[in-house]
Each structure stands twice: as structure tokens, then as C-alpha cells.
Amino acid sequence: MEISTSPQPTDPAPPVEGGPATKGAAGRTWKLKTLAVGGAAVVLLGAGTWFGTTLPDPTASDAYVQLAQGKAGVDEALSNSRDAYRKLDGEYATLQSQIKGREDAVSGRESAVGAAEKKVGEAEAAVKKREDAVTGAEKAKAKNTIDEGTWAVGRDIAPGTYVSAAAVGSDCYWAILAGGSNGSDIIENDIPGGGRPSVTLSAGQDFKSSSCGTWTKQ
């Protein structure tokens, strides 16, 4: 039996750190990482495409359509409410203007009535003043005028000298009497029979005139 003398295979020597073998391993590692990242990107792209094509469109759902219709109805109602408010606001402004006009007219009429009442009051005051003046003049005239009858001097008629307003007739009689004597105490008397007789009277006396007409104080 022959013994082979061929050289036996031996294990390769371990690579020296930093040598060519180390550089080859690093290159293979970088390529593997690149392939992994690319694969992941392809997987994600495919997944996105799958989700995009398989998920339903939310705007096509019945709930979305109902909500959209409800929103449109609310928007329309809001718009109508705004129009109604603007209309009511305009009508309110018109009514306010009309009320203001009527109030101004009433105020003007009240002012006119007040002015008229003031004029009436002034006229009434003037009439009253004239009436008082006339009454005073009449009273003064009454005290300064003697008619038929018996009068108390100083109370009914004023003291002073009186003359008949016109010529007297033959039946004229006058008498100056002591006051309170009831005609029994004659101070002076006369039957002039004509002309315009005169008498002088003092307070506290009585004067009687008969058929002599009117006597006027001088």
C-alpha cells in the first residue's frame, strides 16, 4: 500500500485586520443595508397604494351626505333669519320715525293750545280789569250822583256840593236832615220851583230828594 505524499489542504490564514479581506466584508455589509432600505421603501409604497385603493371615500357615505344636507338647511335658515331680521329692523325704524313725527305734531299742537290759552287768559284778565274799572267808576258815580229817595251822606252818597242835572219843576222838594232822625229833624229844605238848585251835604246827614231829578257832585 502506497502512502500518498500529496500535500494536504490547510485552513486559510485569518485575515489581517485592515487588509483586503476586511474591505470586502464592509462592502458586502453596505450593499445588504442598501438592499434592505430599498425593500422597505418598496413595501411601504405598496402598502400606501393598497390602503389608498381599498379605503372608502368618506364624502360618499350616507352620514356625510346627511350632515352636508343638514348644514345646507341650517345655512339657508340662517340666511332667511338674517333677511327677516333686516326686514323687521327696517319696519321698526319706520314705525319709530312715524311715532316721532306724531309726537312732534302733538307737541306742536300742545304748544299752540298753550299759547292760545295764555292769550285767552290775558284777554280775560284785561276784561276783568276793565270790568273792575267800570264797576269802580259806577260805584264812584253812584256815590257822586243822587236820585229820588232818601240817602245817608258818607254811606250812600259822598259828602260835597251837588247840583241838579237839569232844571227842576214846581213840584221839586229837597231836605237836609239830621242823620238817624227819620226825617223829623230838618236842617234845611226848599221847594225851588225851577232852575237848577244846589245843596252842600256833610257826612252824618241824610238827604231827601223828591221830583227833582238827578243831582251831580261838583
Results as ranks from 00 to 15, higher is better:
126 A>K: 15
198 S>A: 12
30 W>T: 06
53 T>P: 07
27 G>A: 13
203 A>N: 14
147 D>G: 14
174 W>T: 03
129 K>M: 04
109 R>M: 10
176 I>S: 10
163 V>D: 07
213 G>A: 02
143 K>W: 02
167 A>V: 01
115 A>S: 15
86 R>T: 06
67 L>T: 07
203 A>T: 07
178 A>P: 03
105 A>K: 15
134 V>C: 05
20 P>A: 11
26 A>W: 10
66 Q>V: 03
180 G>D: 04
97 S>M: 09
139 K>I: 06
54 T>S: 14
60 A>E: 14
190 D>A: 12
177 L>E: 03
181 S>Y: 09
63 A>S: 10
161 T>N: 04
182 N>I: 03
33 K>G: 07
146 I>A: 01
103 E>S: 14
47 A>M: 13
57 D>T: 06
45 L>I: 09
88 L>F: 09
110 E>P: 04
58 P>G: 11
109 R>C: 05
62 D>Q: 13
70 G>W: 13
11 D>Y: 14
149 G>F: 06
153 V>S: 00
36 A>I: 05
209 S>F: 00
13 A>G: 07
177 L>T: 01
160 G>N: 01
187 I>S: 03
21 A>D: 12
149 G>I: 05
205 Q>N: 05
121 G>E: 13
164 S>F: 02
96 Q>R: 15
73 G>A: 12
10 T>M: 14
22 T>P: 05
121 G>Q: 13
111 S>L: 12
200 T>C: 02
112 A>M: 12
157 I>R: 01
9 P>Q: 13
73 G>H: 11
110 E>Q: 15
32 L>C: 05
157 I>K: 01
173 Y>E: 06
148 E>P: 02
167 A>W: 00
35 L>T: 08
158 A>K: 07
204 G>N: 02
218 Q>N: 15
43 V>G: 15
13 A>E: 15
162 Y>S: 04
91 E>P: 07
84 A>L: 12
78 L>C: 06
166 A>H: 06
23 K>S: 11
13 A>R: 14
98 Q>H: 10
146 I>V: 09
71 K>A: 09
42 V>I: 12
9 P>H: 09
15 P>A: 13
45 L>H: 03
133 A>P: 08
90 G>C: 09
67 L>S: 10
69 Q>T: 08
55 L>N: 12
140 A>P: 02
55 L>Q: 12
151 W>T: 00
154 G>D: 03
176 I>R: 15
213 G>D: 01
